[in-house]
Design a protein around this nucleic acid. Sequence first.
DNA 1: TAGTGGTCTAGACCACGGC
DNA 2: CCGTGGTCTAGACCACTAG
Lengths: 255, 255
Amino acid sequence: MNHAASPASQTGAPNAPAALYQQVKDYIAREIQSGAWRPGDRVPSEQELVTRFSVSRMTVNRALRELAEQGRVVRVAGVGTFVAEHKPQSTLLSVVNLQDEIRMRGHDYACDVILVERVAASIEVAAALDLHTGESVFHSVCVHREDGVPIQLEDRYVNPRVAPDFITQDFRNTQPGEYLLRNVPYDQVEHVVDAISATAEQATQLEMPATQPCLLLTRRTWTAGVPVTFVRCLHPGNRYRLGSRFRADGNPAFG
Amino acid sequence: MNHAASPASQTGAPNAPAALYQQVKDYIAREIQSGAWRPGDRVPSEQELVTRFSVSRMTVNRALRELAEQGRVVRVAGVGTFVAEHKPQSTLLSVVNLQDEIRMRGHDYACDVILVERVAASIEVAAALDLHTGESVFHSVCVHREDGVPIQLEDRYVNPRVAPDFITQDFRNTQPGEYLLRNVPYDQVEHVVDAISATAEQATQLEMPATQPCLLLTRRTWTAGVPVTFVRCLHPGNRYRLGSRFRADGNPAFG
DNA sequence: TAGTGGTCTAGACCACGGC
DNA sequence: CCGTGGTCTAGACCACTAG
């Protein structure tokens, strides 16, 4: 194995050998992927890998730490490293900011704010925002358009405790979601995707036939554990889809 | 700042101070989150942080590297580290293995294999699997059930070049997707989610009314760059949803 | 007590980009 | 040229777990 004095392992280097930690990582990943090491099997200890690859412990440690972050191995201090049980066959789908996504496609983005009001929380909204039924909440409805075509009907509820000035904003230039992102950034988010039919009113607002199935993206966000917003985004099924591309090595590349 | 001789920063330690790299990470994350450092702003160099926090460069490097992995900063070798442009408001949704998911809920899982055949690739299938139209491909159709209720109609095409024995398998005990996972593990995957209407035949197979909107999950997988399988999973909208919960600090926790 | 992983240090060499 | 980040080393101390 080549050492510190060896050719570059720099990002840009064209035909450079992989970084040492990456070589160790690849080796372990291959043993797991090939089935040579089964789930639950013990992975060689850091010290064993140090001697086997003739690298320092920090290098082996980085390889194992990153594999653990990816969920391929489980590390237990004082015990050892093990092949993760049952490669949780989960994959990731990306949910991107609509405005950025549309503009990145080079298309025109517009947002019609249909409604901004203060209402009493329904049972559902109160539960979602962790408030009492009947408490005052902010409510907004907008239609987002791509090149003039409605792409999303956004039905949003906002917790006045964390965004008291929401109701007094001028939403002609900044859409509600954008305002919240800038002023009440969240640190936790929950998403749910459903396929449903639109109501007659929703179909009208989205300028689509009522028979068209829709994608419903429901999102809740929190900041420091306090609910910020609860929003239902309704997309005509023939005008919107969620997608992702994922490479095994760790970094997802979305397209 | 406390040093090597300081109290534990071990995982298990109850009231131990955070690890030094974590403290540096937290500091930078706070400056960004609070808005003190705007997108595009330069983050102090590793050397500056080393002197400011009186820690070693490796420690600062780990903090910055992990922030870069999370997409909060962008690092350019030879130039510097910068606050990431407009936190690409993307979030992740998990797509989990259906069989595991159902069993994890404590429900009964079953799979009816409707069909396994060899067919000539249509234009669409040929494009998806990177084959020529009319080339021979394997085709299977199954219905997956949760407690007897159809949850997914799986329409799968398999590249015979990478899974030549697919057609000769006995799928009474192992379902097609499971066979592929075990024998032709993939290293790249693409997912797309749509909301569509089921055809009459599909509605019958799923034992659902034809008017019910459906979630269509289309997946393609590759191994070493070669397409493995192209599968369309159709879910009745009222019996299935995709969901995720994401914490800001890095590791998504799905529920 | 011996082995494990978790963290940290104080150096080091390298490729890159801007000056 | 210098400062930047990317990587690597050969040690070190610690807490935890098991025999």
